[in-house]
Each structure stands twice: as C-alpha cells, then as structure tokens.
Design a protein around this nucleic acid. Sequence first.
DNA 1: TTGAAAGCGCTAACAC
DNA 2: GTGTTAGCGCTTTCAA
Lengths: 342, 342
Amino acid sequence: MKFKIIDVATRAGVAPATVSRVLNDSSKVTPKTRDKVMKIINELGYQPNAAAKNLRSQKTMTIGVIVPDISNSYFSEVIKGIENIAYSKKYKVVICDTENNEEKELEFLNLLTTRTIDGVIMVAPMLANEVILQIADNGYAIGIVGKQIDHDRIPCIVTDNVKFSMKVISHLVELGHREIAFINGSAHAVDSYDRLEGYLKALREHHIPFRPELIEIGNFNETGGYEAIHRLFAKKIPFTAVYSANDEMALGVYRACSELGIQIPMQLAVVGVDNNRISKYITPPLSTVNQPKYTMGALLVEKLIDMMNENEYAENRVFKVDSELLIRGSSDFKKNGQESLK
Amino acid sequence: MKFKIIDVATRAGVAPATVSRVLNDSSKVTPKTRDKVMKIINELGYQPNAAAKNLRSQKTMTIGVIVPDISNSYFSEVIKGIENIAYSKKYKVVICDTENNEEKELEFLNLLTTRTIDGVIMVAPMLANEVILQIADNGYAIGIVGKQIDHDRIPCIVTDNVKFSMKVISHLVELGHREIAFINGSAHAVDSYDRLEGYLKALREHHIPFRPELIEIGNFNETGGYEAIHRLFAKKIPFTAVYSANDEMALGVYRACSELGIQIPMQLAVVGVDNNRISKYITPPLSTVNQPKYTMGALLVEKLIDMMNENEYAENRVFKVDSELLIRGSSDFKKNGQESLK
DNA sequence: TTGAAAGCGCTAACAC
DNA sequence: GTGTTAGCGCTTTCAA
C-alpha cells in the first residue's frame, strides 16, 4: 500500500501543508502537532514521492558524474569522494562512464537540460572548453576535476602537475641520473603541457641540458607506454631513467623491459604518476606520484553543492592540490626486497 | 530561457497533448503535424522536464546499483555492463558504494520506496535474504548479481562456483599436486559454500583424501589472505599448492611468500579467482578464474528492465554463467618468463 | 501556528 | 488525428 501526504494529513487531523512542514522541518510547527504527525508517518511507513517533490521544488537532489572509465582506479577513487560527500548532503549520484567517448559525454549533459540532475561534475572532460563554458553560461551547475577552466561559475580542482613533475625529476637527479627520458600523455591534454613544463623546469634547475629526442608521447595507456619506450630505445641515445606521465604507461615500460631483459631499476629507473592500485604490486614496485583522488572528488562536490545552493560564491573557485611522491623499488633499488609488498 | 510544452504547443498552433504525442512518438499524429511540431521544438531547443514526466508517468527511468566497493575492478566491470545496457534503453543508473556497510545498503533501498528509482540491482548483497525477499514482496523491482535468491520476482545471475572450483583443483592435480590448501572467503558468503563444495568434489573425484586443516578463511581481502597463509604455514602440514577464493587474498599469499622467501610456483602453486586487473601484472602472473563480469551486469539489467515493463515473466529467472580458468605462471612454471606480461 | 488552494509540467482519458 | 481537461503528489504562498 502506497500512502500519500493527504493520507497522513487526514489521519493526523491536520492539513497536508502541516505534514509537509513536519517533513521538511520548517520550524513553524508545535512539538505537539509534530509528534502527532510523526506518529502517523511511522505507523503508515509513509515516504514522500520524489517525483512530486522534485516537480514542485524544481530540484532533484541529484548530481551527475562523468568519467572516462569507471574501472580505472583513479576515477573510481574520485567517484568515491564525490559519492560520500554527496550522500551525506542528501544528494544522489548518477554515473556516466563515457568509455572515452566524447559523444557520450555530450549526450549525458542533456540530463541537465531535462532537469534530471541539478548539477554535473566532469572528471577529465574531453569536450572542448567552449562547450563547457556555454553550459555554465546557460545557468547550469558544473564542476571539473582534473582540468582548469576559466569561468567564474565553474569550480575546478587540479593537481599541481608542474610541481610534482619537478619533484620526480629532482628525485631522479639526486639518484645520479642525468639522461632522463619522458613519456608524456596525449599531446592535447592540459596535464601533458604542465608535466612537460615541470620536467623542463627541473632539468634547468639542475643545469641538465634538455634533449627533445628523449620525449615521447604515450597517450596515457599501457600500449602507448610500451610503444613509446620502444621508440626511445630505437633512437640509441643513452638514458638511465624514464618519467612516465602515468602508471598505465609505466606498465608498458615494464613489459618492454621484461621482453628486452632490461633490469629495473639497475639499468633503467622508472617513475610513474597516479599511484594506481597496481603500481604497488608489480615487481619492482613502481615509484609514483600519489594524487589525493578521493579528496579531490570530495572537495569539488562540496564546492559545487554550495554553489548550487548559493551559500557561497565565485571566489576561491580553483583548487590546486599537492601530490606526494612515493619512492619505491623502480627508482631506488635500496627500496627493493622484503618490504616491497607491504 | 526554459520552455515548456505549452510554449511549443502555442507556437506550433496545436494542443500540448499533440506535442506530447510527437515526443513520445505515439503513432496517432500526421507526418505534417509532427514536422510542424518538431520544427518548433528544435527552434526553441525545448527539452521536456523530467520531474513532471516522472510524476505523471509514475516512473523515473532510473535504476539503482548497489556495490560493496566501486574501486574493486570486479564490481566496476559489472557496473559497466549494467550502465551500457541501461543507457541504451534510456535508463539512468544511480550508484551506491556501500563500502561494505550493510546499513548503507539498506538506506539506499529507500530510493525504491520514495520512487526515486524504478528498480535496483544489488551486487553481492550483504543484507539478509529475508529483507530482500520482503522488498520484492512489496512489489519493488529488484535483481541480484552474484547471489541466488529464490523468489519468482527476483532475477539473479551467478557464476557456477562449484564448477570452476573443480576446474581449478583438477588443474592443480594434473600438475602433480596432492596437498592443496584452500583459502576460502568469508564464512557466511554463499560463494564460499559453493567454492568449498567444488574443492571437495574435485578432491573426491581424484581420490585425494580431504584434510580440514588445509582450509582457512580469508574474508576475501589481502590482509585476510596474508593471515590465512601464515596460519596454514604455522600448522607444519606440508602442502604444495593453494587455491585462494579470490585474487585479493592471493595478493596476501604473494606478500607472505615474498617475506618468507617461498618461490611461486616452484615451492607453492597459487590460483585465485576474479581475474582482477592486478593478477596479470604481478610476478609471477597469477592463474585465476575469469568471471564474465561485464556480461553478468548486462544480462541482469536487461532481465530486470524486461520484468519492470512486464514484457517478460518469472520463468528463466536464475542465470548461471560459466567462467574460464586462466593458467598463468603462478601455477604452471612453463608459463613464466618473457610472455608473462603480454 | 495552521489551513486552503494554486500550481510545478507533463500525459492520458475522453470527446470531438 | 487532435483538443480539452483532470490530475500525478507535493510545497508554498496567502489568509486566518
């Protein structure tokens, strides 16, 4: 049996409006009436109908999240952060896994215009900035994780790519490396620019000449990393370390090295980015950069919800968070051995 | 500017009902009117309001999915299957990551009673069967992945645990193993019973006496596996192989072996279950059972949607799918070496 | 503090 | 084939 507000109202001898007030604990109701109403609500197991509520209140308490690949632990961690905060604030979360498909990304944004969701968070969006800006201009709530977009109604959270890339290179230099190759992500990703910038900046700081031949593009996936390191080897330029712009590509490096009998880290030091769950379990464990994925999701959704409810305004719109370099056996061979899997 | 159906109607010189008919392509509308209406719709960029539609039609075209942990690749693959099929049928998917928290699981089910979602899929639910049966009895649409529940309105999809466990043990026996330890999942999981049953059945088939001391509980996580293998070693009973009821626990086995200097597979063969993404990348690569996760999600959501729309009925309610044994270096040392990371 | 009543935007039953 | 109209279940003025 499905009850509605009127059922509760009549049984409690009050008007529907009063029941509504009790439910949304608007203060203007005497404890006595409140108790009376609550009793009936519990007796009947009454639950308000969400659709009616949504229609009337013009919001759905739902946030959409668009990610390129939900089974990539980077994204699922971000989602966890979003989800947890969202639920604690009574919001639901609808997920869209685009499978790196730009059209699916665009299509999902329709949920905003149909008012199925109150706002959307795009994680590492592929869509052109203009499209995203347009949406914000149309008054829809939108937030971005992993890319910075300049619009005073779009909160963004990004990691300081330049900074941690410098940390990585400095770490390798301190270990004595001077010829450090760099496998970058896709050429059009903003992250790629920044990571390259950090790479160059660090080299300059350490007075190491920069050699463009040591840079390759790996498109952020395992195969890309595998092919990139092969291209690097093919050049016959000596290098003793490689900075891979993410862990996935580093897996490709491991595969190539395993095939060619190249020892990590003795013959080649490797550092990745992401602290992918896998990175800890491979042999040797991969040195990597740990981005605060959960926190990034959590922080951004909080900001977005605040903005939607206009508790807060545009200032402090872009968050740049720091990442931590995890030194493991792939760069520092002293770190190898027994404790590697701890 | 936000338009409503009446805006389209007046501009097109028709009644709102006609616009609605065009939108929901009910056949009773002449091509001419349809064109006229569509033209205005496109001009205005009109999009129907979801809340109003939901309220009127008493459905939300949304399915909830409850998983214990979204960053576990097993679950994210299931979600992918669900999501893809759901979106292709115009359904949205709301995710709940319970973090293995039974209360969160229960709480999320409220979305059914508030009619926020039309149905729910529980993946490896923790909630007692009675609770789930009750929900179905109340007329809500519910489906289960990874557990079989007997109720003629609940579609379920499970893997044949008995069958693949037998495959695993037979594989080990064929390699010459006779003392095979078994690290089972949590004691109250149905999967655990079935996997144990398969283990026992296979031993019997091969005329290998069953030794209860060789069985330990590892609760399906890394630490559990680590502790379980330590307990097994502590017993001083020789065994040459271990069947771990999932890959996570096998990781714990790897860690313990690495610490104790035990060589896999030479001194101990290891086989897991799940084909977790990690299993391929560890050293040696882990032999494991690949469950068709994506397909399981896809198949079940399809069934659930059919049931909700009553295209289909109770018969053929439980799906049992087969899994494939992937033999890798952790059990068969001929499989080690160069090709291990391919 | 409480009640009456309007209306959120859509669909479907019925009438023409 | 198309229009009219009631109403889905709730919240929120406004009045009392």
